[in-house]
Design a protein around this nucleic acid. Structure first.
Lengths: 156, 156
DNA sequence: TGCAAAGCTCATATGCTCATGATAATATCA
DNA sequence: TGATATTATCATGAGCATATGAGCTTTGCA
Protein backbone atom coordinates (compact mmCIF):
# COMPACT_ATOMS: atom_id res chain seq x y z
CA UNK A 1 0.00 0.00 0.00
CA UNK A 2 2.46 2.62 1.17
CA UNK A 3 5.99 2.48 -0.18
CA UNK A 4 8.79 1.35 2.05
CA UNK A 5 10.09 4.91 2.03
CA UNK A 6 6.81 6.36 3.33
CA UNK A 7 6.71 3.78 6.05
CA UNK A 8 10.28 4.61 7.05
CA UNK A 9 9.30 8.27 7.22
CA UNK A 10 6.30 7.59 9.43
CA UNK A 11 8.29 5.37 11.72
CA UNK A 12 11.13 7.86 12.00
CA UNK A 13 8.78 10.69 12.81
CA UNK A 14 7.17 8.66 15.57
CA UNK A 15 10.58 8.06 17.09
CA UNK A 16 11.58 11.70 16.78
CA UNK A 17 8.32 12.84 18.35
CA UNK A 18 8.82 10.44 21.24
CA UNK A 19 12.36 11.59 21.83
CA UNK A 20 11.13 14.88 23.24
CA UNK A 21 13.77 17.04 21.65
CA UNK A 22 16.47 16.42 19.12
CA UNK A 23 17.36 13.03 17.75
CA UNK A 24 20.19 12.30 15.36
CA UNK A 25 20.18 10.00 12.37
CA UNK A 26 22.37 7.36 13.93
CA UNK A 27 20.16 6.94 16.98
CA UNK A 28 16.94 6.91 14.96
CA UNK A 29 18.42 4.38 12.57
CA UNK A 30 19.40 2.12 15.45
CA UNK A 31 16.00 2.32 17.05
CA UNK A 32 14.05 1.71 13.85
CA UNK A 33 16.44 -0.55 11.92
CA UNK A 34 16.19 1.79 8.96
CA UNK A 35 19.47 1.91 6.94
CA UNK A 36 21.26 4.98 8.21
CA UNK A 37 22.27 6.61 4.94
CA UNK A 38 18.86 6.10 3.48
CA UNK A 39 17.22 7.48 6.57
CA UNK A 40 19.35 10.60 6.31
CA UNK A 41 18.00 11.26 2.88
CA UNK A 42 14.41 10.72 4.01
CA UNK A 43 14.78 13.09 6.94
CA UNK A 44 16.33 15.66 4.63
CA UNK A 45 13.23 15.50 2.41
CA UNK A 46 10.98 15.88 5.42
CA UNK A 47 13.03 18.91 6.31
CA UNK A 48 12.51 20.51 2.92
CA UNK A 49 8.80 19.77 3.26
CA UNK A 50 8.70 21.78 6.47
CA UNK A 51 7.97 18.88 8.79
CA UNK A 52 11.38 18.73 10.41
CA UNK A 53 14.08 21.19 11.41
CA UNK A 54 17.69 20.17 11.58
CA UNK A 55 21.04 21.36 12.81
CA UNK A 56 24.49 20.15 11.90
CA UNK A 57 27.58 19.63 13.95
CA UNK A 58 28.13 18.28 17.41
CA UNK A 59 24.84 17.83 19.24
CA UNK A 60 22.94 18.37 16.05
CA UNK A 61 20.01 16.36 14.82
CA UNK A 62 16.40 16.60 13.75
CA UNK A 63 13.28 17.75 15.53
CA UNK A 64 9.64 18.37 14.66
CA UNK A 65 8.96 21.74 13.09
CA UNK A 66 5.41 21.67 14.49
CA UNK A 67 3.55 19.95 17.32
CA UNK A 68 2.43 16.47 16.28
CA UNK A 69 -1.24 17.47 16.48
CA UNK A 70 -0.53 19.64 13.46
CA UNK A 71 1.13 16.97 11.34
CA UNK A 72 -1.50 15.02 9.41
CA UNK A 73 -0.23 11.76 7.98
CA UNK A 74 -1.15 12.85 4.50
CA UNK A 75 1.64 15.42 4.53
CA UNK A 76 4.16 12.72 5.25
CA UNK A 77 2.83 10.49 2.52
CA UNK A 78 2.69 13.22 -0.09
CA UNK A 79 6.38 13.78 0.41
CA UNK A 80 7.18 10.34 -0.98
CA UNK A 81 4.26 9.06 -3.03
CA UNK A 82 3.52 10.47 -6.42
CA UNK A 83 0.72 12.97 -6.80
CA UNK A 84 -1.75 10.49 -8.28
CA UNK A 85 -1.58 8.26 -5.24
CA UNK A 86 -5.15 9.06 -4.25
CA UNK A 87 -6.42 10.11 -7.67
CA UNK A 88 -5.80 6.74 -9.20
CA UNK A 89 -8.69 4.53 -10.17
CA UNK A 90 -8.85 0.77 -9.76
CA UNK A 91 -7.86 0.23 -13.36
CA UNK A 92 -5.28 3.00 -13.33
CA UNK A 93 -5.58 6.52 -14.56
CA UNK A 94 -4.74 5.45 -18.11
CA UNK A 95 -7.96 3.46 -18.40
CA UNK A 96 -9.83 6.22 -16.70
CA UNK A 97 -9.14 9.57 -18.29
CA UNK A 98 -10.74 12.79 -17.03
CA UNK A 99 -14.47 12.90 -17.59
CA UNK A 100 -14.68 9.39 -18.99
CA UNK A 101 -14.82 7.14 -15.94
CA UNK A 102 -13.99 3.49 -16.36
CA UNK A 103 -16.19 0.59 -15.33
CA UNK A 104 -14.64 0.32 -11.90
CA UNK A 105 -14.49 3.97 -11.04
CA UNK A 106 -17.76 4.62 -9.21
CA UNK A 107 -17.46 1.45 -7.17
CA UNK A 108 -13.88 2.10 -6.15
CA UNK A 109 -14.07 5.82 -5.49
CA UNK A 110 -15.61 5.60 -2.00
CA UNK A 111 -12.80 3.34 -0.83
CA UNK A 112 -10.14 5.71 -2.06
CA UNK A 113 -11.92 8.69 -0.61
CA UNK A 114 -12.22 7.09 2.79
CA UNK A 115 -8.56 6.20 2.79
CA UNK A 116 -7.63 9.72 1.84
CA UNK A 117 -9.76 11.12 4.66
CA UNK A 118 -8.09 8.81 7.11
CA UNK A 119 -4.68 10.19 6.20
CA UNK A 120 -5.98 13.73 6.32
CA UNK A 121 -7.73 13.39 9.67
CA UNK A 122 -5.14 11.28 11.45
CA UNK A 123 -2.14 13.09 12.87
CA UNK A 124 1.19 12.06 14.23
CA UNK A 125 -0.24 12.79 17.67
CA UNK A 126 -2.90 10.13 17.14
CA UNK A 127 -0.21 7.55 16.47
CA UNK A 128 1.68 8.61 19.56
CA UNK A 129 -1.46 8.33 21.66
CA UNK A 130 -2.16 4.90 20.26
CA UNK A 131 1.37 3.79 21.06
CA UNK A 132 0.95 5.12 24.59
CA UNK A 133 -2.26 3.14 25.00
CA UNK A 134 -0.50 -0.03 23.88
CA UNK A 135 2.28 0.55 26.31
CA UNK A 136 -0.17 1.09 29.17
CA UNK A 137 -1.66 -2.29 28.38
CA UNK A 138 1.50 -4.28 28.00
CA UNK A 139 3.80 -1.98 29.90
CA UNK A 140 4.20 -3.37 33.42
CA UNK A 141 5.05 -6.80 32.14
CA UNK A 142 7.97 -5.67 30.03
CA UNK A 143 9.22 -2.46 31.60
CA UNK A 144 12.09 -4.26 33.33
CA UNK A 145 13.36 -5.59 30.03
CA UNK A 146 14.83 -2.18 29.40
CA UNK A 147 13.03 -0.87 26.34
CA UNK A 148 13.41 2.85 26.76
CA UNK A 149 10.58 4.15 24.64
CA UNK A 150 9.45 6.55 27.33
CA UNK A 151 6.88 9.09 26.26
CA UNK A 152 7.32 11.43 29.21
CA UNK A 153 8.68 14.88 28.91
CA UNK A 154 7.05 15.78 25.61
CA UNK A 155 6.44 19.46 25.99
CA UNK A 156 3.87 20.09 23.31
CA UNK B 1 -2.42 0.74 -4.70
CA UNK B 2 -2.74 -2.22 -7.02
CA UNK B 3 0.24 -3.22 -9.13
CA UNK B 4 0.20 -2.53 -12.83
CA UNK B 5 -0.06 -6.27 -13.42
CA UNK B 6 -3.20 -6.64 -11.31
CA UNK B 7 -4.77 -3.72 -13.11
CA UNK B 8 -3.94 -5.28 -16.47
CA UNK B 9 -5.56 -8.51 -15.30
CA UNK B 10 -8.73 -6.75 -14.21
CA UNK B 11 -8.97 -4.81 -17.41
CA UNK B 12 -8.38 -7.86 -19.57
CA UNK B 13 -11.02 -9.87 -17.74
CA UNK B 14 -13.55 -7.12 -18.28
CA UNK B 15 -12.83 -7.18 -21.99
CA UNK B 16 -13.02 -10.96 -22.15
CA UNK B 17 -16.31 -11.00 -20.27
CA UNK B 18 -17.76 -8.40 -22.61
CA UNK B 19 -16.68 -10.31 -25.69
CA UNK B 20 -19.34 -12.94 -25.10
CA UNK B 21 -17.27 -15.92 -26.02
CA UNK B 22 -13.64 -16.37 -26.89
CA UNK B 23 -11.14 -13.56 -27.25
CA UNK B 24 -7.54 -13.91 -28.30
CA UNK B 25 -4.52 -12.18 -26.86
CA UNK B 26 -3.91 -9.95 -29.86
CA UNK B 27 -7.42 -8.54 -29.86
CA UNK B 28 -7.47 -8.01 -26.09
CA UNK B 29 -4.09 -6.33 -26.28
CA UNK B 30 -5.29 -3.97 -28.97
CA UNK B 31 -8.43 -3.05 -27.10
CA UNK B 32 -6.70 -2.48 -23.78
CA UNK B 33 -3.28 -1.20 -24.90
CA UNK B 34 -1.63 -3.81 -22.72
CA UNK B 35 1.68 -5.06 -24.22
CA UNK B 36 0.76 -8.26 -26.00
CA UNK B 37 3.50 -10.57 -24.76
CA UNK B 38 3.06 -9.41 -21.22
CA UNK B 39 -0.69 -9.87 -21.46
CA UNK B 40 -0.20 -13.42 -22.66
CA UNK B 41 1.73 -14.21 -19.52
CA UNK B 42 -0.93 -12.62 -17.31
CA UNK B 43 -3.73 -14.55 -18.97
CA UNK B 44 -1.76 -17.74 -18.58
CA UNK B 45 -1.53 -17.12 -14.83
CA UNK B 46 -5.26 -16.46 -14.65
CA UNK B 47 -5.72 -19.76 -16.44
CA UNK B 48 -3.67 -21.65 -13.88
CA UNK B 49 -5.70 -19.95 -11.15
CA UNK B 50 -8.87 -21.37 -12.63
CA UNK B 51 -10.37 -18.07 -13.73
CA UNK B 52 -9.85 -18.57 -17.46
CA UNK B 53 -9.90 -21.44 -19.89
CA UNK B 54 -7.90 -21.38 -23.08
CA UNK B 55 -7.45 -23.21 -26.35
CA UNK B 56 -4.58 -23.08 -28.80
CA UNK B 57 -4.45 -23.18 -32.52
CA UNK B 58 -6.51 -21.43 -35.14
CA UNK B 59 -9.59 -19.86 -33.62
CA UNK B 60 -8.21 -20.35 -30.13
CA UNK B 61 -8.28 -17.84 -27.31
CA UNK B 62 -9.36 -17.31 -23.72
CA UNK B 63 -12.75 -17.34 -22.05
CA UNK B 64 -14.10 -17.14 -18.50
CA UNK B 65 -14.07 -20.41 -16.62
CA UNK B 66 -17.03 -19.24 -14.53
CA UNK B 67 -19.85 -16.74 -14.84
CA UNK B 68 -18.68 -13.26 -13.81
CA UNK B 69 -21.03 -13.28 -10.79
CA UNK B 70 -18.78 -15.97 -9.37
CA UNK B 71 -15.50 -14.12 -9.87
CA UNK B 72 -14.78 -11.88 -6.90
CA UNK B 73 -12.09 -9.29 -7.53
CA UNK B 74 -10.04 -10.60 -4.66
CA UNK B 75 -9.29 -13.78 -6.60
CA UNK B 76 -7.85 -11.73 -9.41
CA UNK B 77 -5.74 -9.67 -7.07
CA UNK B 78 -4.43 -12.62 -5.11
CA UNK B 79 -3.06 -14.03 -8.32
CA UNK B 80 -0.58 -11.15 -8.62
CA UNK B 81 -0.11 -9.49 -5.24
CA UNK B 82 1.89 -11.15 -2.51
CA UNK B 83 0.08 -12.85 0.30
CA UNK B 84 0.65 -10.03 2.79
CA UNK B 85 -1.15 -7.52 0.65
CA UNK B 86 -4.00 -7.18 3.13
CA UNK B 87 -2.19 -8.34 6.21
CA UNK B 88 0.27 -5.50 6.15
CA UNK B 89 0.12 -2.71 8.69
CA UNK B 90 0.67 0.97 8.07
CA UNK B 91 4.25 0.76 9.25
CA UNK B 92 4.86 -2.56 7.53
CA UNK B 93 4.80 -6.02 8.97
CA UNK B 94 8.40 -5.69 10.18
CA UNK B 95 7.44 -2.98 12.67
CA UNK B 96 4.38 -4.91 13.59
CA UNK B 97 5.16 -8.52 14.42
CA UNK B 98 2.45 -11.01 15.42
CA UNK B 99 0.90 -10.20 18.77
CA UNK B 100 2.84 -6.99 19.24
CA UNK B 101 0.89 -4.36 17.32
CA UNK B 102 2.61 -1.13 16.35
CA UNK B 103 1.39 2.35 17.14
CA UNK B 104 -0.53 2.65 13.89
CA UNK B 105 -2.10 -0.76 13.83
CA UNK B 106 -5.47 -0.27 15.49
CA UNK B 107 -6.14 2.96 13.65
CA UNK B 108 -5.26 1.55 10.27
CA UNK B 109 -6.86 -1.89 10.57
CA UNK B 110 -10.45 -0.80 9.79
CA UNK B 111 -9.32 0.79 6.53
CA UNK B 112 -7.55 -2.34 5.39
CA UNK B 113 -10.44 -4.52 6.44
CA UNK B 114 -12.93 -2.44 4.53
CA UNK B 115 -10.79 -2.55 1.43
CA UNK B 116 -10.45 -6.29 1.70
CA UNK B 117 -14.20 -6.68 2.02
CA UNK B 118 -14.72 -4.56 -1.05
CA UNK B 119 -12.56 -6.89 -3.11
CA UNK B 120 -14.28 -9.91 -1.65
CA UNK B 121 -17.82 -8.66 -2.19
CA UNK B 122 -17.35 -7.07 -5.59
CA UNK B 123 -17.41 -9.38 -8.58
CA UNK B 124 -16.49 -9.05 -12.19
CA UNK B 125 -20.23 -8.88 -12.90
CA UNK B 126 -20.49 -5.72 -10.79
CA UNK B 127 -17.84 -4.06 -12.93
CA UNK B 128 -19.65 -5.11 -16.08
CA UNK B 129 -22.94 -3.73 -14.77
CA UNK B 130 -21.24 -0.47 -13.87
CA UNK B 131 -19.77 -0.22 -17.34
CA UNK B 132 -23.19 -0.87 -18.82
CA UNK B 133 -24.69 1.91 -16.72
CA UNK B 134 -22.02 4.31 -17.94
CA UNK B 135 -22.67 3.38 -21.51
CA UNK B 136 -26.40 3.90 -21.08
CA UNK B 137 -25.65 7.40 -19.87
CA UNK B 138 -23.16 8.42 -22.49
CA UNK B 139 -24.07 5.88 -25.11
CA UNK B 140 -26.32 7.61 -27.64
CA UNK B 141 -23.88 10.45 -28.04
CA UNK B 142 -20.96 8.26 -29.03
CA UNK B 143 -22.41 5.10 -30.47
CA UNK B 144 -21.85 6.31 -34.03
CA UNK B 145 -18.17 6.77 -33.35
CA UNK B 146 -17.80 3.06 -33.74
CA UNK B 147 -16.63 1.83 -30.38
CA UNK B 148 -17.81 -1.75 -30.42
CA UNK B 149 -17.93 -2.52 -26.74
CA UNK B 150 -21.32 -4.14 -27.01
CA UNK B 151 -22.45 -6.04 -23.98
CA UNK B 152 -25.24 -7.92 -25.61
CA UNK B 153 -25.20 -11.63 -26.14
CA UNK B 154 -23.61 -12.56 -22.86
CA UNK B 155 -25.21 -15.83 -22.10
CA UNK B 156 -24.52 -16.18 -18.40
C1' DT C 1 0.21 -33.43 -44.74
C1' DG C 2 1.77 -29.07 -44.49
C1' DC C 3 0.85 -24.29 -43.32
C1' DA C 4 -0.77 -20.74 -40.41
C1' DA C 5 -2.85 -19.25 -36.09
C1' DA C 6 -2.67 -19.11 -31.60
C1' DG C 7 -1.14 -20.01 -26.82
C1' DC C 8 3.27 -21.52 -24.07
C1' DT C 9 7.83 -20.85 -22.39
C1' DC C 10 12.20 -19.02 -21.62
C1' DA C 11 15.94 -15.65 -21.95
C1' DT C 12 16.93 -11.07 -21.76
C1' DA C 13 16.38 -5.98 -21.25
C1' DT C 14 14.80 -1.76 -18.80
C1' DG C 15 13.47 1.43 -15.37
C1' DC C 16 12.39 2.43 -10.76
C1' DT C 17 12.65 1.90 -5.78
C1' DC C 18 15.59 0.91 -2.29
C1' DA C 19 20.06 1.04 -0.51
C1' DT C 20 25.23 1.88 0.03
C1' DG C 21 29.48 4.53 0.32
C1' DA C 22 32.25 8.39 -0.01
C1' DT C 23 32.93 13.10 0.35
C1' DA C 24 31.60 17.95 1.36
C1' DA C 25 29.75 21.43 4.32
C1' DT C 26 28.79 23.07 8.73
C1' DA C 27 28.72 23.39 13.68
C1' DT C 28 30.62 22.71 18.53
C1' DC C 29 34.06 22.70 21.72
C1' DA C 30 38.62 22.01 23.91
C1' DT D 1 42.38 26.64 15.23
C1' DG D 2 42.07 21.95 14.84
C1' DA D 3 39.52 17.69 16.06
C1' DT D 4 35.20 15.74 16.03
C1' DA D 5 30.29 15.22 15.27
C1' DT D 6 26.67 15.73 12.46
C1' DT D 7 23.77 16.80 8.36
C1' DA D 8 23.99 17.52 3.05
C1' DT D 9 24.98 15.85 -1.34
C1' DC D 10 26.35 12.99 -5.06
C1' DA D 11 27.66 8.77 -7.50
C1' DT D 12 26.92 4.20 -7.75
C1' DG D 13 24.92 -0.46 -7.22
C1' DA D 14 21.28 -4.27 -6.24
C1' DG D 15 16.91 -6.24 -6.92
C1' DC D 16 12.35 -6.41 -8.50
C1' DA D 17 8.34 -5.28 -11.35
C1' DT D 18 7.57 -4.49 -15.86
C1' DA D 19 8.29 -5.41 -20.46
C1' DT D 20 10.28 -7.39 -24.95
C1' DG D 21 11.58 -10.94 -28.28
C1' DA D 22 12.28 -15.35 -30.11
C1' DG D 23 11.39 -19.87 -30.65
C1' DC D 24 8.39 -24.00 -29.19
C1' DT D 25 4.03 -26.55 -29.07
C1' DT D 26 -0.54 -27.37 -30.14
C1' DT D 27 -4.50 -27.02 -33.07
C1' DG D 28 -7.57 -26.36 -37.17
C1' DC D 29 -8.10 -26.40 -41.86
C1' DA D 30 -7.26 -26.40 -46.95
Amino acid sequence: MLSQTSRYALHALIVIARSSGQANVRVIAEETSIPMNYLGKILHVLGRRGLLRSSRGVGGGFWLARPPQQIPLIEIIEAFEDRQFFARCLLGSESCPEGRPCAAHALWAPIVEQTRQFFEATTLADLLAEGQALEALAGPARLPSGSELSIDGVEW
